[in-house]
Amino acid sequence: MGASAEEILKTHGLRSTRQRHVVLEEFSQADFALSQPELEKRLKGEMDRVTLYRILSSFEEKGILHSIVDQFGTTNYASCSSSCSAGHHKDQHIHFNCLNCRKIYCLQSTNPPVDIPTGFKAENVSIVATGLCKVCSSN
């Protein structure tokens, strides 16, 4: 996320609140996707679970974040590229889910071709690779 929290919220038509700024700050500091439980730990009681859920939902709806479900069924969120907009996530790429630390990384530079048959219209493409991330594989 290169833009400021204020710019991101304004661009996506969201009111600027302290809680939204705090959540955007967490995503700007993370180089991997964050789940709601992980965010709750990081925020240490700064906001309640319902408020956080609403923020994450609105950010996904507006194209600020995209969601990825890990191998355990937990939804994780990562920052969208600038090409995403409300309801249209265009940053389709492979996600890497580490089996050891469970972190999910967006592999932006890896974008395999997906051949959708004639007559089908893909709304979203999700490819998840699993294995060990560079930190876990070096230990």
Score class of each variant (00 low, 15 high):
L9M: 03
A33V: 05
C136S: 00
R18C: 08
L9T: 02
G119A: 12
K44I: 10
S83L: 13
T74E: 05
N97M: 00
F27Q: 04
C80A: 13
C101F: 13
F27P: 05
T74H: 09
A129Y: 13
D31G: 11
L34A: 03
M1F: 12
T51L: 07
Y77H: 11
I94L: 09
H12Y: 12
V50C: 01
I8L: 01
Q92A: 09
L43M: 15
E25M: 08
E7F: 10
L34W: 13
P113L: 09
I8V: 15
S137R: 10
I116R: 09
S58H: 08
E25S: 15
K103C: 07
S79W: 15
S81F: 14
L34P: 06
R15N: 02
I116K: 06
N76E: 06
A33L: 06
S82F: 11
S16T: 13
H12E: 00
K90W: 02
P112K: 05
G73W: 04
P113E: 15
H88N: 10
C136I: 03
C133F: 08
R102D: 15
L65N: 02
P117F: 10
I116L: 15
K10C: 11
Q71W: 07
H95L: 04
I116C: 14
S67C: 12
I127R: 12
D91M: 01
E38R: 10
I8K: 02
R15E: 08
G131L: 04
V128A: 14
V128P: 06
S57D: 10
C80D: 13
C80V: 03
Q71D: 07
C98G: 02
L14A: 03
F72C: 05
E46V: 06
D70Y: 05
G87M: 04
A30K: 08
S16K: 07
N124Y: 11
S4N: 02
S81M: 11
L9P: 02
G13V: 03
E7Q: 07
I116V: 15
N111Q: 09
L52Y: 08
E46L: 07
V125I: 15
N100H: 11
L34H: 04
G2S: 04
R15Y: 11
Q108M: 13
G63D: 06
E123A: 09
V128F: 07
Y105V: 08
L52Q: 01
E40S: 02
S138I: 15
M1S: 13
L99E: 07
Q92G: 08
R49I: 13
Y105W: 09
A78W: 13
C101T: 04
E26S: 13
A78C: 12
